[in-house]
Design a protein around this nucleic acid. Structure first.
Lengths: 124, 124, 124, 124
DNA sequence: GTGGTCTAGACCACA
DNA sequence: GTGGTCTAGACCACA
């Protein structure tokens, strides 16, 4: 299920891209499972097919899905995509730590906040 | 020193805003220290004064600086601005941890990466 | 309906901002209702689109509306904006009372004037 | 004693004007008492004499002071000025009540806040 | 078509 | 000289 948030600052196609990445990561979409067709999803979400097309293009160039002409789009196998996003998370962590140091946070404070938040998420 | 990065996705006025926030946080600009005038900075960076004006407006509405007509713009006192940015860092940390869990990272792995990165930053 | 008062000391963009706040508070604009587009309102009021843009930017950063690129601007849900303005009213009341005491007004006189004015407004 | 607040949004000459009005209302400056000369005050506050001149002009046209050529400026007698400011306070009260109703405040809530604030000010 | 960014430049209020 | 407001208009991202 895709839910669009028009008050989200990100463009629609990025929201759709992220949503499918999440579904694939969480296992909601297995390898070779078909994605909805561009047209049907566009109709369902009441948005322009170009926007869906753009999201699928990004997913394909990121290695998340593959397209078969005349058939549709399907979830890719392999863990390249998952790993690329993991790399991205670490990159964001680096940037965040730089900022945390800048605003005067202490190392222990930061790590404790991270550990505490992690527990909360996992048990939720 | 302000350096613009035109390949940065962020608009110029946000880059300038962030740069002055950093300078203030790092202590390079003390309370009541004058910022460059709108016009002089515009000339120095070869951009339009309106763009500088917009950055200063954001800094002022965020409590980082105050502007006096006919006099110039100056660094605000107080720690409200600094604290607001610290809150923002913690909010970003929460979002990042959600994403880390999603991509299958382990808690220990994440915390170790954070600790290691912190050390590297501080000793740099 | 937006009416500009060029003899008003406030800049045009603030008048527009205040006018939309009033419309939203009075319920003339419900949640998710679209505001006029930047260009159409600029044409209607015979002013520059940038000025409208600035008013909308302020409304957005104040939590009154949200803007979607390519779609338009819409009334936000939530009561944060409404509450922030209520806080502001109480702050103004404090300042006014200080001034009233300064000019030698009596407490009963002030409260009576307030009560009387309130009645007049409500029954109007 | 005049204290300038450059982070105050009001222009300097208005701050000076308001400060003298307060001094006169509070009795710190009696009828016919001399105000500091434009030059001496300008020197003391390290600002442009034009700015002082402008404040004195406003005070004179508002009936708060009178100027004697070659002698200086002096506090006016009479209560016209005091009354004019009292009228202004009532006008502000009207505007504030309109706004309070708009944001959904209740009459009793507003009057109670006013009474409570009044007590706090008087006993302070 | 719609909002977002930026340039170029005018004019005003203020010091 | 300095910040603040506004116009005129271009170009981009997005739907």
């Amino acid at each position: 299920m895709i839910i669009l948030d028009y008050s989200d600052r990100r463009p629609i196609y990025e929201q759709i891209e992220a949503r499918f990445q999440d579904l694939i990561l969480k296992g909601g979409l297995e390898k070779d499972a078909p994605l909805p067709s561009v047209r049907s999803l566009a109709t369902e979400l009441s948005i322009n097919p170009n926007t869906i097309q753009r999201a699928y293009m990004l997913l394909e160039s990121g290695g998340w899905i593959y397209s078969v002409r005349g058939k549709g789009s399907f979830v890719s196998g392999g863990s390249a995509a998952r790993n690329s996003r993991k790399t991205e998370v670490l990159r964001k962590l680096d940037a965040l730590i730089e900022e945390a140091i800048l605003v005067g946070a202490e190392k222990e404070e930061f790590l404790a906040a991270a550990a505490s938040k992690w527990e909360k998420e996992v048990t939720a």
